[in-house]
Nucleic acid binder design. Structure first.
Lengths: 188, 188
DNA sequence: GTCTATAGTACGATAGAC
DNA sequence: GTCTATCGTACTATAGAC
């Protein structure tokens, strides 16, 4: 029952949205409070400091991540294809949490880096289970990373990038075909 | 003759180093001036504003980029392999300029984004010439992007990451083998 | 639980001496 | 060309009324 629009939830959502659309420097306490419809004092009642706001964001990210790991482990297309496919920004809650947190990596806060390092380790583990070969697994992860970083850094001008095309008319399906080529063939 | 340690050059180098090691928020005018061994007033004589500092960084980046495009077009191993290989952080002047500028993308400055968009377009063009197929070219670029972004965002704890290994014992050579697998075979 | 008012600090930039 | 001193602003966070 955490999904009701409590003030705390509205503040967190506003912080996330500001990070995604305008970057960390624009996500000041004033701006977040205004976007959430409360005063700065009201915001600081729920989150005692800016660091607490970040922690709130990361806690939410970790929640979504656990659910994603479970889905990935059971994905019928295999973990590798699942990873690449979901590396395209899809505007899901998980995607939004990732991109928002990504924008904080440059900052001084080392805890954000650590969270992403942990996510990466889990993903790699799953892909390796799927593909067996370390180099291939690494290559597939890098491909997905490239997709995600491009989205996170260069973003979605105005809601574009949501479709299937990633660039120059190249579709995700075309990328997935390439990933399948890399899958070690069972000798028959 | 731009390589002599002029004050202007030292300031620019100090700004670059601070961006790479401590991020944008640490690269204040005070910090840059101190690192370069001048006062803030002295710094501002050479660069009238912080924006001018960024422009100086980008000008340098563009210079290095032009030289890299030329080398890439003539690379014996082909453009695709060249791109992936040089996407590993190698501590070259070009690498350092790229990583430093990358840290500014999150900021408000749109000019940094545009420079990287331009670089990407040129690289893609060269790789496509090499590989002929758009989807494959895109995949190779994403692989290189992933390498570079991981380096730029998570960095080099203390000079590590300079060797051939990128992660979990996976070498760049192993990644290059995978790229070669993707190269469309000449029908014989 | 939410507000206003304000303290304290850090940053970018200017002015003017040397 | 480089320095010191200073102004203006924007931000985080606290204190206390309601």
């Amino acid at each position: 029952m955490t999904s009701q629009p409590s003030t705390r939830g509205r503040v967190l959502a506003a912080y996330q949205d500001l990070l995604i659309s305008d970057g960390p420097s624009a996500a000041t306490l004033d701006a977040v409070a205004a976007a959430a419809g409360v005063s700065k004092g009201g915001l600081l009642y729920h989150f005692k400091s800016k660091e607490a706001l970040v922690e709130g964001l990361l806690a939410q990210l970790r929640e979504y991540a656990e659910a994603d790991f479970a889905a990935m482990a059971q994905a019928p297309q295999g973990c590798a294809a699942y990873y690449v496919r979901t590396s395209v920004f899809g505007n899901t809650p998980f995607d939004r949490a990732i991109v928002a947190a990504h924008r904080l990596i440059q900052g001084d806060d080392d805890s954000v880096r650590q969270v992403f390092a942990g996510l990466h380790a889990r993903w790699y583990e799953l892909i390796l289970t799927d593909l067996k070969d370390a180099a291939t697994a690494h290559a597939v992860m890098l491909l997905g990373d490239g997709l995600y970083y491009n989205a996170a850094l260069f973003g979605f001008p105005t809601g574009v990038h949501f479709g299937k095309e990633t660039q120059d008319g190249v579709t995700v399906d075309a990328l997935l075909e390439i990933v399948e080529k890399l899958r070690p063939q069972a000798r028959s």
